[in-house]
């Protein structure tokens, strides 16, 4: 095995495909002469190939449920968030005030059972992901503002901010 040179240090970047064209060219030339680097590349390729041939499965549904339950107990110190939640529970889960939530109700997926407003956690999760969270962030900001202004709810103001950038993101 030859001694390692400065060029050998480019190995990891080469494996990541991170090298600029000239660096890549010089490393490729180096590979032809350096046994040590060739061996490293060979092993790396072998390992990556074996990982591809033997993919691990994901977390099973059973285990997923168990983990979620345990995490909920940790977070809430009580029962996990339900699949169907009322306004209060949904607000707590979203980390906003019930008032902020109520104000934006027309923009949030909710449904009615016997005249009561309810939220499906699964649908909310999807909605947050699809809406990419813009609304959630605004809700949280209004929640933070409320904390600052002590019950002085910023009515009417944030309708205008909606389409503008929300700064923090």
């Amino acid at each position: 095995m030859n001694t390692t040179s400065k060029t050998c240090l480019l190995l990891e970047d080469y494996l990541d495909g991170q090298l600029s064209k000239p660096d890549k060219d010089s490393f490729t030339a180096h590979l032809a002469e350096c046994d040590a680097c060739r061996e490293q590349v060979r092993v790396s390729e072998k390992v990556r190939e074996l990982f591809n041939q033997h993919p691990q499965t994901g977390l099973s549904d059973d285990a997923d449920l168990r983990v979620r339950m345990a995490l909920r107990r940790e977070q809430y110190g009580k029962e996990p968030a339900k699949d169907v939640m009322n306004l209060e529970e949904t607000a707590a889960w979203l980390g906003v005030t019930p008032g902020a939530l109520a104000e934006r109700l027309d923009e949030i997926p909710a449904f009615e059972i016997g005249g009561r407003i309810r939220f499906s956690r699964k649908r909310l999760e999807k909605w947050i992901e699809m809406k990419d969270g813009d609304i959630l962030l605004q809700l949280q900001q209004s929640h933070l503002r409320k904390d600052n202004n002590l019950l002085q709810f910023p009515g009417g103001k944030h309708g205008k901010q909606q389409s503008g950038n929300s700064g923090a993101v």
């Binding site: 994901g58 977390l59 997923d64 983990v67 979620r68 995490l71 977070q75 809430y76 968030a81 707590a92 889960w93 979203l94 980390g95 906003v96 909310l124 999760e125 947050i128 992901e129 959630l136 949280q140 933070l144």
Partner: peptide, 17 residues
């Protein structure tokens, strides 16, 4: 960290598998 549990659920969703 600011109290939005939903954000945690989304991180869990992204990283669990």
């Amino acid at each position: 960290a600011a109290g939005t549990m939903a954000a945690f659920d989304m991180l869990y969703e992204r990283y669990r598998h």
